[in-house]
Computed example of a mutant assay.
Amino acid sequence: MPLNSQQIRKLRALAHHLKPVIMVGDKGITENLLKELDRALETHELLKVTIAGADKAGRLEMTQALCEASQAEVVQTIGRISILYRKSKEPKIRV
């Protein structure tokens, strides 16, 4: 489900104070990282991901790959930080 502009605005405001939960390092996207991302999205719904060791185009590609693998939506990307959202089975955030 694509997010509309009001939903994105609300999620950006909620994510402002969050610390990055997932960090993609030099090894890139691994199976263990995807498992941890899935667990974190189910637990938190909204989270920040830090992507290190890549240029802007590489970071955008990694963000898209993470979203495709986890069925999440990109809320925002700023520099090395990407904000992802996926509604969990027991919703915690009302969007």
Rank of each mutant, 00 (worst) to 15 (best):
I78L: 12
A52N: 09
E31P: 14
N4R: 07
V24D: 05
L11P: 08
S70L: 01
D38Q: 04
R9N: 14
E42C: 01
D38Y: 00
M23K: 15
V74A: 03
T50M: 13
A69N: 02
T63K: 05
S70Q: 02
M1R: 13
I29Q: 00
M62H: 03
L11C: 04
L14T: 07
L84M: 05
Y85Q: 10
K27E: 11
L11W: 08
A40F: 06
L34Q: 02
L60I: 15
E90L: 07
D38G: 06
T43Q: 15
Q6V: 13
I93V: 10
K56N: 10
V95G: 11
L18M: 06
H16T: 11
V75K: 04
M1P: 13
R80H: 10
L84H: 02
I22W: 01
S5G: 15
M62I: 08
T50K: 13
A69F: 00
A13V: 14
L11N: 06
A40C: 08
G79C: 08
H17P: 11
V49R: 02
Q76Y: 07
I22P: 02
K92H: 10
K27H: 07
Q71Y: 14
E90F: 14
A72I: 03
L37G: 05
K27C: 11
A52K: 12
L18C: 00
H44K: 13
R12Q: 13
K92R: 10
M1K: 15
Q7G: 06
M62T: 09
H44T: 10
M23R: 15
V21E: 05
